[in-house]
Design a protein around this nucleic acid. Structure first.
Lengths: 213, 213
DNA sequence: GTCTATACCCGGATAGAC
DNA sequence: GTCTATCCGGGTATAGAC
């Protein structure tokens, strides 16, 4: 777990708190990380954090909010693509896995741990539901137009989520490069499993890479 | 999160500790669950736990050890099947998802949270590596015999892991029945995505269900 | 094996000087 | 905005009676 490789010179303290908190949460969980750990990673004293965030909870909430807003926007954008559900889904997965690879934040704790189950993260849960509904919409339309196999929508959505979450898991290991967090591999795996005619995959890929990716 | 539905009458205290601890870990994480919470769920006082386990860590370790031993055994058994890698993988997934559905323990925190990253769980990490090596072996042989698509072994293994982990995630929600934790759906999704000729899936399924499932 | 009592540390958060 | 000092609750674990 190297997790640096980003130039943090000149970042405002508030951003540094978000950055280091996300990485500490990833390693020890939200509840396992203390505000003292975060402050010490940033290089300030523990009470100074409270000039930037009213509570530890607020730090995680902002990380969640930023990430889910970006995901929801990307999904809405992809869902408008006239090339149909398979290309829409492929494009979204490319965007998501690329974004996970490139963000300086480590988002693992937000979705893999207990965080979203804690009662105080009601707002994050609402955003997450909105996100999942958009994803389910693309999948449903693919099943209805018979571009995808006739499978249970909820099941297919879970399977897609599973691959996205695994990409998030891998992003923590910055040792191994380009495994599941290789955007085209992840997107191809999912779309191939869903396409009614899997041999159409190369055409879907080509369409997804054409135009404003 | 209802999580009961099992008759715990007559269970020894030690087993009750494991049961309730697993469920509390699932909801608040290992580090977020206190020994007081566990004791109170079992119906004893907090120090009484130390007659059964030398530490909180030892409780999680036993849960890990039991689950990984069972998984490793099942993988070894499936890997000997003469019907080939696709059937071996399909059978193993059936076993795994069924086992996740039926166990009274809630195993989510063991694999989804920070637990395996904590330094004190070195033994669990070793077992987990052994488990993953066996799974990778089946996948590798499928790629070598060209029953599976020519893909990166590590990538395919991650994808299979992703689906198993999602089944574990779903098992917590005992509200929604039979979604990703429907054994045949999970197994079919994975094997279909890996088969070089996806139309062979029905034959693989039939073979997997024949004989000592 | 279970209890009460307790040691001792570390958690989040606040007050108030600079 | 950052600091020192501090409050107070809750954490794991142990001692020792029953």
């Amino acid at each position: 777990m190297v997790s640096q490789a980003f130039d943090t010179a000149g970042w405002p303290t508030r951003e540094l708190i978000l950055l280091h908190a996300s990485r500490l949460f990833a390693g020890r969980g939200f509840l396992g990380t203390s505000t003292r750990d975060i402050a010490s990673a940033v290089g300030i004293r523990q009470p100074s954090m409270y000039s930037h965030f009213p509570s530890k909870h607020a730090i995680a909430e902002e990380l969640l909010r930023r990430d889910l807003h970006a995901g929801i926007e990307a999904l809405q954008r992809c869902a408008q693509d006239p090339a149909g559900p398979a290309v829409q889904l492929y494009r979204y997965l490319l965007w998501e896995v690329t974004s996970v690879r490139e963000t300086p934040f480590d988002l693992r704790a937000l979705y893999l741990g207990e965080l979203l189950d804690l009662p105080e993260f009601e707002h994050g849960r609402r955003l997450n539901n909105e996100y999942e509904a958009l994803l389910a919409g693309i999948i449903r339309s693919g099943i209805e137009t018979q571009e995808f196999v006739a499978t249970d929508v909820a099941f297919a959505q879970r399977a897609v989520d599973a691959i996205i979450l695994e990409a998030i898991r891998c992003s923590g290991d910055r040792r191994q490069h380009r495994i599941l967090d290789e955007p085209d591999m992840a997107a191809a795996f999912v779309v191939r499993a869903l396409l009614r005619v899997p041999s159409r995959l190369p055409r879907v890929q080509a369409a997804a890479h054409r135009a404003g990716s």
